[in-house]
Amino acid sequence: MKILITGATGFLGKNVAAQLRNMGYQDIYAYTRESTMEDLEHYTKECEFVFHFAGVNRTTNTEDFKIDNSGLTESLVRLLQTNGNKAPILFSSSIQVNNNSPYAESKRFSEMLLHSHSEINKSSVLIYRLPNLFGKWSKPNYNSVVSTFCYNIARGKPIHIHDEERIVTLNYIDDVVGEFISALNYIKDEKCDYYVVPKTYRISLQKLADKIKEFKRNRETLIMPSLASGFDRALYATYLSYIENDKFSYQLKKQTDERGWLAEFIKSESMGQFFISKTGKGITRGNHWHHTKVEKFLVIKGEAIIKFRQVGIDQNIEYKVIGEKPEVVDVPAGYAHSIENIGEDELITLFWASEIFNPEKTDTYYMEV
């Protein structure tokens, strides 16, 4: 299928084009700000489907709305009709279409043009009225409040909230892309209809800002906020996409002693914490037990003996593990445990504990295995 995307390098267009290519679509006509009207004339002769995303959301010159929004729509339908092309059109409109702004007026006029085109050209048209969108590649201070908050917070810049309790309705870009690409298969008639992306999220501006600030603090506290909800996972993915290119990495704090070193990696209020250690040859770690805290040990380099002894019972249990054969060893509550480097090289171990370490309530009691 030959697919025309207007606004192909914008937020929507770039994401849709990328996923179409992932799915094997090769003939994509990308109409951008650098394209000419001659390009559009050629594309409208050949295309079999149109994603019409081009336009402006914000501008200091209100005439831009007429030129880049309704004006381009007018050119698009005129050329399709001139070329006798009945390709279906999917148009990205806005839930703001009924307000009195110049932007809304341009969207209303575009919708009217597409309604007329559907009747005249006997072409299928889907008009999606979208709320605020968020996700990777969105332009801050332009496309979305989410992108603006993520961009500024990631860089330590202030954000401005005029109404903390104001609720915003959001669509995540991956949900929008999935909905739009499915339209390639289900447009079957010539009716012009309005549609929405079913999966939406609603959140106050203050709660939105608080969530993003928690993501930023993760590097300092190592505490990862809950990602149990689809919205939180989508928002975290969006936030990370706005980190500056030279700031993707960050240092962990190493605790070093005669045994080697240990560093906490990530913590969660609901899932405990991960940490990693390097242990020298012949060195033993542990020799303690817990009432409630449980752990998992995973040796990723070297050889080790992990020993256990149930409190009150004079009998040891041993597990020999090697990094080349990943094997997770559970540490039950009520068992003293230790891990000893028995190899010729350093021992690297990844640990998980069911609770974040609390120095005031360690639940850790010395007992040699």
Rank of each mutant, 00 (worst) to 15 (best):
K2G: 08
L4C: 10
L12D: 02
N15W: 04
V16A: 02
G24E: 09
A30Q: 14
A30V: 02
R33Y: 06
V50Y: 01
H52A: 01
F53W: 08
F53N: 11
T62W: 08
F65G: 00
N69D: 05
L72S: 13
F91A: 02
S92D: 10
A104Q: 04
E111P: 05
H117I: 06
E119D: 12
Y128Q: 02
G135Q: 07
W137L: 11
S138H: 03
P158H: 06
I159H: 10
L170Y: 01
V177T: 15
V177P: 06
A183D: 09
A183V: 03
K188I: 10
D193N: 13
V197H: 11
R217P: 00
I223C: 06
D232P: 02
A234I: 03
L235A: 01
T238C: 08
S249L: 12
Q251M: 08
L252N: 08
G272Q: 07
F275T: 00
G282S: 10
K293Q: 06
I300V: 15
A304D: 01
I305F: 13
F308E: 01
Q310M: 10
E318N: 09
V321W: 04
E324G: 15
A333S: 09
Y335P: 05
A336G: 08
I339Q: 04
I342P: 07
D345C: 07
I348W: 08
N358T: 02
